[in-house]
């Protein structure tokens, strides 16, 4: 069965792109800190979800990317929540939050680990946050790879769709590490897509969309 990519959203540096169009660019002074930049994006798009502020940066990055992509794609109007999967890949796992937790337990004399920090020391919590927000209850997994690897991701997601484990899948790259951050999410759908310009779900197409933020 043909599967197609029906939408993309990318957060790179201090820019946010939806379907290949630049939607938001934070002023340089708010973009030095990743959390500040993501909060600026949250405010710019008028999102209202107080739990956003409790999330670690990896989950904030995932949440904002999904928040821009999913409602616009109108997926929930067409599919049951159980039929939407989430498969994300990342390099640094939850390293930034691991460091915060480690600092809180390093000295026995000032041992105050925080439950609200510890819970984010797993990379798949970001998938949990997206799932809660959009009520996605389907297949979900988090793979760790050196870099964004469509050659690994595309066949796996194609198989998920082929065996009908899901009808659509939110896929992509979600990285927040010591050397920077980047999110590139795309939607893959099984059925004939209502998107104006669906693209085939193949490795070269995913590579192209990933390498050219301004593709539209």
């Amino acid at each position: 069965m043909e599967t197609s990519i029906t939408a993309t959203c990318a957060i790179r540096g201090r820019q946010i792109f939806l379907n290949g169009t630049l939607l938001f660019e934070a002023p340089e002074d708010t973009a030095a800190d990743l959390s500040d930049f993501l909060i600026a994006g949250y405010r710019h798009f008028g999102v209202s979800y107080p739990k956003f502020f409790k999330m670690d940066v990896l989950s904030k990055l995932a949440f904002l990317t999904a928040e821009l992509l999913l409602p616009k794609a109108g997926l929930q109007d067409r599919l049951r929540p159980a039929d939407i999967g989430v498969v994300l890949t990342n390099r640094s796992s939850s390293l930034l939050t691991d460091v915060v937790h480690q600092q809180s337990i390093a000295e026995p004399a000032s041992h105050f680990p925080s439950p609200a920090v510890f819970v984010y020391t797993l990379p798949n919590i970001a998938i949990g946050e997206i799932s809660i927000r959009h009520q996605l209850t389907g297949e979900n997994s988090l793979f760790v790879t050196e870099s964004f690897e469509p050659a690994m991701l595309v066949p796996y997601v194609s198989q998920l769709l082929a065996e009908k484990s899901c009808q659509a899948c939110l896929c992509g790259w979600l990285e927040a590490g010591l050397t920077g951050h980047e999110a590139f999410f795309y939607l893959v759908e099984n059925h004939a897509s209502p998107a104006p310009t669906p693209r085939p779900h193949r490795v070269p197409d995913v590579e192209l969309l990933y390498s050219q933020p301004h593709y539209s």
């Binding site: 996605l136 389907g138 979900n140």
Partner: peptide
């Protein structure tokens, strides 16, 4: 099969 509760982290 794998699923998500979509309930709490």
């Amino acid at each position: 099969s794998s699923t998500n509760d979509a309930h709490h982290i």
